[in-house]
Write a protein that binds this DNA or RNA. Structure first.
Length: 201
DNA sequence: CTAACGATTCGCT
DNA sequence: GCGAATCGTTAGT
């Protein structure tokens, strides 16, 4: 393991599903307001711009919001969901492909006290950081950090100690995208089969 | 300009 | 298990 940030070459690979799989076990870190908070990524979902009806940027849909996904890999795509929750995604692939990985859950590491404070909670349990809206609140991530580079000092991802093989990961349907018709069935959601830090089983 | 709708969470029954 | 909360984005008039 190292404490180095993942390099741009990691984010700019062209298989977003494989990147989503590899991101499970990596460590998502933020330093927002001077305090380091971090957690092991325990659940991800892949969204593919070119041929995925669940993706905001599917079929070349290019709008003000989705412009972020069309940038080169290695930055944050953060948007407001249901008018309440800020969801954190990692833009992948090269410019104009519009691929991204949604981070749906983390297991807390550093800064647990601040995470509890931000969430208005008192115990470190899955409700603290398991869920795409929950983890962003715990880490201090909001829509204002959209297009933030993951090579910077506010939000980044490091190598973790865990290294999951394919048979230790569950690959299943993505959550909350029933509107995506046949693409709703794609097994593009990943989590470790023994982890309790999962948004839904 | 208007209206419908979320890549969700929480509280209450 | 069900429904409310809450507002930016999007597509259509």
């Amino acid at each position: 393991m190292s404490n180095d940030k993942l390099p741009l070459s990691f984010y700019r690979q062209d298989d977003v599903v494989n990147i989503a799989r590899q991101l499970v076990g990596k460590v998502l870190c933020t330093r927002i307001g001077d305090t380091l908070t971090s957690g092991i990524i325990t659940e991800t979902e892949a969204y593919c711009g070119r041929n995925d009806k669940a993706c905001h940027a599917h079929a070349g849909t290019r709008t003000e919001r989705t412009e972020t996904m069309y940038q080169g890999g290695g930055m944050a795509y953060i948007y407001l969901c249901y008018g309440i929750h800020h969801l954190f995604n990692i833009v992948t692939n090269v410019e104009d492909q519009a691929d991204a990985v949604l981070v749906r859950a983390i297991e807390p590491l550093n800064g647990q006290q601040l995470m509890l404070q931000r969430r208005g909670s008192t115990e470190v349990a899955p409700t603290l950081t398991a869920g795409p809206g929950r983890l962003t609140e715990a880490l201090g991530i909001s829509r204002g950090y959209d297009q933030t580079s993951l090579q910077g000092e506010q939000i980044w991802i490091e190598e973790g100690e865990a290294d999951f093989s394919d048979d230790e990961l569950v690959a299943t349907q993505r959550v909350g995208i029933e509107y995506a018709e046949e693409d709703a069935e794609l097994p593009w959601r990943f989590y470790p089969n023994e982890s309790r830090w999962i948004s839904k089983k």
